[in-house]
Design a protein around this nucleic acid. Sequence first.
DNA 1: TCAATTGCTGAACGGTGTGTAGTAGCTGAA
DNA 2: TTCAGCTACTACACACCGTTCAGCAATTGA
Lengths: 246, 246
Amino acid sequence: MTEGSRRERLRAETAREIKETALALLSEGGPGAVTLRAIARRMGMTAGAIYGYYATRDDLLTALIDDVYTALMDEIEQACDALPADDASGRLLAWAETFRRWSVANPEGFRLVYGEPVPGYRPPPGGPAPGAERRACAGLVTLVAAAWPYLTSPGEVSPKGSQEISPYEWSDFGPGLADEVRASHPGLPPSAVALALRVWGRMHGLVALEVHGHLRVQARHPDKLYRDEICDLVTSLGLPAPGPRP
Amino acid sequence: MTEGSRRERLRAETAREIKETALALLSEGGPGAVTLRAIARRMGMTAGAIYGYYATRDDLLTALIDDVYTALMDEIEQACDALPADDASGRLLAWAETFRRWSVANPEGFRLVYGEPVPGYRPPPGGPAPGAERRACAGLVTLVAAAWPYLTSPGEVSPKGSQEISPYEWSDFGPGLADEVRASHPGLPPSAVALALRVWGRMHGLVALEVHGHLRVQARHPDKLYRDEICDLVTSLGLPAPGPRP
DNA sequence: TCAATTGCTGAACGGTGTGTAGTAGCTGAA
DNA sequence: TTCAGCTACTACACACCGTTCAGCAATTGA
């Protein structure tokens, strides 16, 4: 892979430095500060030189989003893997709390991944980071799959309570996700995927409001709200309520 | 108010036309199309002329956001008021479905209100449309207040189930919201406001993911997911499950 | 040693938001 | 009716943006 002809090594290193500089500018000066000219200026180059590495500004940003999204998923998965595999409540809580903590600490990163990243950016069709996004969805399906026995009794098709209203088919989901889930969780019904996507939305809502400045005006302790919401989510999945704060 | 000295009338009319043109450009060409020069061009003016009406581009956008947010709240409240006041389930569902329908139909409006509105816009401190936002929060509190009897039994302080984990004080919320709620719903505990904000987040999550293009890649029918999620929300509030689709 | 490739510069083009000087036209009182 | 004053607007300038391109200098491989 790293067929290190000196030129290629320098080239890869510069490409990395461009992304690094863009990220630094993003966290220092906000989305408006990420311009090709500013990146080049800081690196001692001209703006035109960047076009040797990325065909367009949006290409650079897409690469950046992929990096940031991947880093977020690394952090989330690491937090989950620190808990025993059978601790479904703990893993769900860890996922949610890690997601929120990261989002609040890196609002620009959150905007990059889940909002309008930077003035004028238009994402490519299929999304800027399909790999990391599928990783997120598949991970959530695994969490829901761990809770599935708590939701269904033997011989029962639908989960208890009102978790499921309408029936789902595999064709209701993107082929990439559906195939991946069927391969990794044989026997899991498509309704579980629907539930996982709803869990995704439930984890996302309060964080999105908070990062975009809506929640902080109304509530002094969004973390408390979020924790309550996630605890409610955990118990609504039939899982035992998680312990007190770590 | 409309002290119609001809000059003032013309002036107000022009200010309105500027916002109208900006809104038209937004829905036609997306966020990137809203530039002072484009607005002026369409109105047969120069960009500089707009500074006679709005001190800066962001001021114009702030006025625009306030208009759009107000229109959204008008629509939501109208949908709720079409149902009997004691139909708490129906009103909650109507709120959520109207919110999602509006957001999907006006993604630019959604971005304007809940995301990064337009390239480079920085909202004023306190948010661009504090009035409409408080209207939203207060409306959700009213919905939760209608469900409160279902959640608590006489003599009980905390609601049933795991809806409440930590106790809340009035000081946990923005003074504007807290005062408004205490005046309009005497006897309602602060925990109900916390629950209302969580309901806000839960209604918001899936819609935010969908508008920003994340959900559509994974799921073919986000409306089905959303409806299930809201039905689950309704029953988790102790309310009777809403009927079939209208 | 030398031709080919590569990486970068510097200037240019058309676009943006934002100020400012100057002008044309409307308003209201003499 | 006349005319001073104010207002809304234009025209232009400035600094910045993404993007392109001709040309130059350094590195590379033979």
